[in-house]
Design a protein around this nucleic acid. Sequence first.
DNA 1: CTTGTACCCTGACCGC
DNA 2: TGCGGTCAGGGTACAA
Length: 283
Amino acid sequence: MPELPEVETIRRDLKTSLFSREICRVRVYHDDLILGGISRRAFQMKVRGRQIGKTERRAKFLLFPLYSEANLNAPPERLMRVQLRMTGQFALQKTRPNTEDFQHPGVEFLLDDGNTLYYDDIRRLGGFDLLSLEAWCQLETQLGPEPLSSAFSVKVFAEILAPLRAPIKNTLLNQRRVAGVGNIYASEALYKAGIDPHRPAGTLDEGEIRRLRDAIRFILSAALNKSGTTIRNYRALNGHSGSFQNDLQVYGRAGGMCRRCSGTVEQTTQAGRSSFFCPNCQH
DNA sequence: CTTGTACCCTGACCGC
DNA sequence: TGCGGTCAGGGTACAA
C-alpha cells in the first residue's frame, strides 16, 4: 500500500508516543505476519519486555530499535522491522479501533503507558521481522538512495541509470535503484518530468535526469505535506486519511484529459503494474 | 550481473 | 442474487 510519504507520515505520528515505551505483551493473530523464518513464540520472547527507541524509516520499511536495558543511547539489542505492503495499518490507542477499515487484527503490542499499538492488515502481505544491527546494515546496503536526502544528487542518479536498459518506470519501482518510490509516485514523477515511462533508463540525458530527480523530490515532498495519498486502504495513524489523492495528475485517470495539453491520459502495464501517462507530453 | 514472472492474500467491482 | 474474472500504494524467490 504505502509508499515513502505514507510510511514517513506513520513514522512521524508514532515517533514521539512510542519513544522509550516498554512492550509489556505481544499478541499475534496470524503466524504469517511474522517474517524471516522466526516462530510466533520466538518473536514474542524477543520483543516482550523491551523498550522502544527512536522509530526510523528506510525505503518503505519502518524500524523500531528494541532495547533490553534502559540505555537508549547504546546500540539496540535488535531492530523490529515492519513492512506494510499493500494493506498494513497502525493504530495507537487504549482500545481496539472498531472502524470499518480496521477489522483484520494482525499483531498487538501492549505498552507500559496503557496504550496498545495495533497492527491491522487485510491481505496479510505485510509483516514483522527481527534483525540484528549487522543483518540490517547488510540489507540496507542493497537499497538505493533515499530520494529526499542530499545523497540523491543528479550525479548519483545519473550513475545509477547509466547502465540500465529496463524501462525507467520499472527502474523507479526497483528499491535497489531508488528507495521508497512506488507505483503512484513513479507515474506522477515521470509525468511531471515529461518523460515517457517506457524509455530505457540508460537513455535519459543529463537534463532529463535532473528534471526527473527534481520531480521525484517535488512529488514526494508534496505528498508528505498532505500526509500521503488515500485511494482505498491506506490510513495514517488511527484511521486518518491523506489528501494527496486530490493532487494526482495522471494516476488512476486513464481516459481523462491531460491537465497540461488537453490530450488523453493513457494506461499501460509495466512490471505487472499499471502505468499512467500522457503520450503527448511525455517523451 | 540484469530483467521478467509468479506468488503471497483479501475484498471490491464489473459483466453475465 | 450469485458467480467468475480482474485488479489493488509491495517485495521476494526463482528462472532466463
